[in-house]
Amino acid sequence: MHSPFEAQDSPKQDPNREPRLEVASRSHVGMVRERNEDTYFTFVSQAGGAELLPHFGLFIVADGMGGHNDGHRASKLVARTVAHHILDRLYRSLLREGHSAIQQPVQEVMEEAVSLANQALAAAVNDGKEMGTTLTAALILGSRLFLVHVGDSRAYLMQELQLSLVTTDHTIVQALQDAGQLSAEEAAIHPNRNLVYRVLMGETMEEPVDVFTRSLPRHGTLMLCSDGLTGQIGESTIARTLGEDLDLQEKADRLLNEALQTGGSDNITVVLVEFDL
């Protein structure tokens, strides 16, 4: 059909641009702990040429709780359950039926994934030994970012040299800051800054988990990390490192090394995703 609106043409995408998702990740036990209780998971599907599938990337960081027994089991189990549910409900449907496949709201799929992971934890508890984990899962679907988040692992978005924290820590100090009772400076040195008030422990969750979406810029870097990174190095160091002219893997290596050199008091995990959409 003839378009009457051709004169109104909007800026079209450069036909030679190739969208891409690139991933680099590191996980390290640190300098103090005996065991790495962090888990990360990345999955990237890229399709080009004819529009087969939208870009699809799933990135998960889970930090098994240090104080609890079996923290490493918890982070592993939760990451696997969440990855399985999201890939099964969204990615497999896309492959099977194409673009029109997604019928259930994406955020509901992510909420279900967390709920299933929590149930799996409940079932896996041994002899009443407590185990728990944080969870930060990011899904890139088309040009949109979906996040589900429990605990104090974090997601950052770097865009045009501006670093912004996308998640909200479920920590006592963050709650105090939100209530205006603590400044960011005071929070950084607060003796209880490691106290997390929400983690997945297989117990009934009183509040719904944080799940939200935002559109992504054309170009940027997404970073997921455990508090072993952010507890050691500040946001200015992270922003500077991500802004440097380095390969993505070199950036991940450098972030890890910075955290190790400043003490490495906890397990350190970092996942970097550079996207061009």
Binding site: P105, L141, G142
Partner: peptide
């Protein structure tokens, strides 16, 4: 109330 992705029509939440 439905929230849909503008590019694809995928449901985001309801």
């Amino acid at each position: 109330v439905y929230a849909l992705d503008v590019a694809s029509g995928w449901p985001i939440w309801r």
